[in-house]
Design a binder for these strands. Sequence first.
DNA 1: CTTTAACATACCTTGTTGGTAGGTTAATAA
DNA 2: TTATTAACCTACCAACAAGGTATGTTAAAG
Lengths: 136, 136
Amino acid sequence: MMISTRGRYALRVLLDLAEHKGEGYIPMKSVAERQELSLKYIERIMPVLSKNKLVEGVHGKGGGYRLSREPSEYIVGEILRLTEGNLAPVSCLECGAKPCERKGQCLTLPMWTEFHQMVNDYFDKITLDDLMNNKI
Amino acid sequence: MMISTRGRYALRVLLDLAEHKGEGYIPMKSVAERQELSLKYIERIMPVLSKNKLVEGVHGKGGGYRLSREPSEYIVGEILRLTEGNLAPVSCLECGAKPCERKGQCLTLPMWTEFHQMVNDYFDKITLDDLMNNKI
DNA sequence: CTTTAACATACCTTGTTGGTAGGTTAATAA
DNA sequence: TTATTAACCTACCAACAAGGTATGTTAAAG
């Protein structure tokens, strides 16, 4: 019942980029120092954000990453689903999962389904901008 | 972001016991067969429920487990916290955790805190009786 | 005194998490 | 053109948790 460091670190990096918006490309080295995270670990998390167009990265001197949208256009749920893979509380609710044998007789499935919905709804109502401005 | 089998199996065993309420002590062998779970694995989960007075177990022939209260008096949140250990989404919210260094400057902590509260509230409003009678 | 079933302990396999190491590619600046 | 910087890629690894199995011991009934 935990959110792993992948999702949490991704959020913190994106928040850091949001706070340095307008300063061009930000090297991960400086983010790692400010956030006290391992540079190498950040480097393993960023490609998925880049491939999904959440950030734009450029190589070489003067390079780094920058946000590709406004902070208010980043949904926390989207970021977590990308980095965590999924927010399903039980495996039978994961996208693409084969239906459970006991689906018909399972007394707990409706609860997990409603819970899953609630979790997604919660994180889908929060944006990076909300977090930055303590709106939560 | 998953509820492990420990918590889910515990719920299913308790629901099975609830369905056989009034039939005395129910051997785990029969529960394992009905629920298609490993008997040995169930046997490793039950002692924690027994020690916390959720069930009463008696040894030997004619023994087994039975509920110690009415199904409507079992809170799902209580069962999950017992078997999962904790429902905290991030380690800094676990009970007994040392306060995080970055607590003051952490932009995401308020979100995790509110989320944690929401999760507990959700499961604390559901009882075994609700699950049995599809009230959810 | 045998059977049954809870309870205890030890072990094991598999997968995930949270990294590190080392190198390659691309861009800029000197 | 070459050195530097920084993204990006691949492989590896240690620690831990999940999800069991195996092998008992203890307690109660018959």
